[in-house]
Design a protein around this nucleic acid. Structure first.
Lengths: 154, 154
DNA sequence: TTAGGTGCAAATTCTTTGCACCCTG
DNA sequence: CAGGGTGCAAAGAATTTGCACCTAA
């Protein structure tokens, strides 16, 4: 719904404004990468975006897609699913629980909440498939990152 | 809380039972990998687990850690954060929204819910840091995976 | 004993980087 | 026109795999 056609034009306008605001050049490649992500509803990874774009831009390179995706992320125009630029992380806590994830360093901690354990997704979600578990992810800056907010991290 | 010391023994017992139930040998390496994950509260990645284990088992290899982690995951003894074995995925939907993620194939779809938009984490979460966003992740099997449930996927 | 498990090293796969040429502003 | 941006190819990381030896059952 949110990515509906009638909004796409506005979002592309916004993208153009943000580029010029940030002093970043508006290239054909950047525009198409943004459009592809904005139109997709399946949250593709870099290589999928590349594959799709090649149909209309046969010469676009995978590394440009990577560079552009991270640029858009830095500009706050797109975001990533799960902890950014992180490896797969493991969890041995099988009880129902929820996560706090630092959006800067990826620090992750469990917490529990009876209220959150009983969340009931809207009926429309059932059209996607069978629901097995519902979990809350809280994002924010961890104490550590707040403390060293001035220092570089990445 | 959930990983408190007094529970560790029970969890290791459970792990041993599951191994024998699955016909999988109980090796020193597997036990230590499981113990490390069960004791850690920071959801380490494979290489972090390896690094920690080398202090007490200098010869354990990184590939054994990988193999063991996925084995434990298959046995349902641990789980992963975010979409399993997936690359970084991107999201251009900046409005507040929530996700349905297929636990088998990783298919991800957005949905919205006013109720979920206003969730308020328990006060204890504030001790981790500053809260910026709260989002619900619904896990389950997507229609596609339900349909081809018999076929191999991975 | 003996098949499954491990360590090592090599192979894959994914992502990033250096550099020369191109195109936006 | 100038400097940022792109494509290409090569480098770097992360993860997986083949194989011979080892060990739990």
């Amino acid at each position: 719904m949110k990515s509906a056609k009638h909004e796409l034009g506005q979002r592309i306008e916004h993208f153009k404004q943000e580029c010029s605001k940030a002093g970043v050049r508006l290239t054909h490649q950047r525009l198409e990468v943004f459009r592809e992500i904005a139109e997709a509803c399946d949250h593709p990874d870099a290589s999928t975006v590349h594959k799709r774009l090649r149909k209309t831009m046969p010469t676009i390179s995978l590394d440009t897609v990577y560079r552009t995706l991270w640029l858009l992320d830095d500009l706050g125009l797109i975001s990533t699913l799960g902890p950014t630029r992180e490896r797969t992380r493991f969890d041995a806590n099988l009880d129902c629980h929820h996560h706090f994830v630092c959006s800067r360093c990826g620090m992750t901690r469990d917490f529990s909440s009876e209220e959150f354990d009983d969340l009931d997704p809207p009926p429309s979600v059932k059209t996607f498939g069978r629901i097995e578990m519902t979990r809350v992810e809280v994002n924010g800056l961890c104490r550590n990152c707040i403390a060293e907010n001035a220092k570089p991290e990445r």
